[in-house]
């Protein structure tokens, strides 16, 4: 039983709380128009939460990322976002530039 507990925990705190939104999406996809007011509000709330998570991971970094100074993490995010805008909103350009910038600055001056 004790070996099973971590897996029960994974289902309870990882799978179900996340998956329920996908199931609700299946339910609402029949009745809701993508531009309905409720959905505009839900998307705004979801967007604020998501960038909130982004800020949390960058500012209060987990694991190995915590070894990189805060100003390097913030600067790299800024560089990545600038590259995203310059490259006509290319997600790939933004992600690659930001990540390489983080590793380069960290190796050169951060540590």
């Amino acid at each position: 039983m004790t070996e099973l507990w971590p897996y029960v925990l994974l289902v309870l705190v990882g799978f179900l709380p996340n998956e329920v939104w996908r199931w609700l999406g299946v339910v609402f996809a029949r009745g809701l128009d993508e531009t309905s007011e409720v959905l505009v509000w839900v998307r705004a709330v979801a967007t604020a939460i998501l960038t909130g998570v982004v800020a949390k991971i960058v500012v209060f970094a987990p694991g190995a990322l915590a070894g990189v100074p805060l100003w390097v993490r913030l600067g790299a995010a800024g560089i990545g976002f600038a590259a995203f805008l310059i490259a006509r909103q290319s997600v790939f350009a933004g992600v690659v530039s930001g990540t390489l910038a983080l590793m380069a600055i960290d190796l050169l001056v951060g540590r």
């Binding site: 982004v54 190995a64 990189v68 997600v91 930001g98």
Partner: peptide
């Protein structure tokens, strides 16, 4: 460690853009 740090940075960076 700097590589793992960079890879962990992919999550916030990719979600931001």
């Amino acid at each position: 460690e700097p590589l793992v740090a960079g890879l962990l940075f992919l999550t916030p960076m990719s979600f931001l853009v």
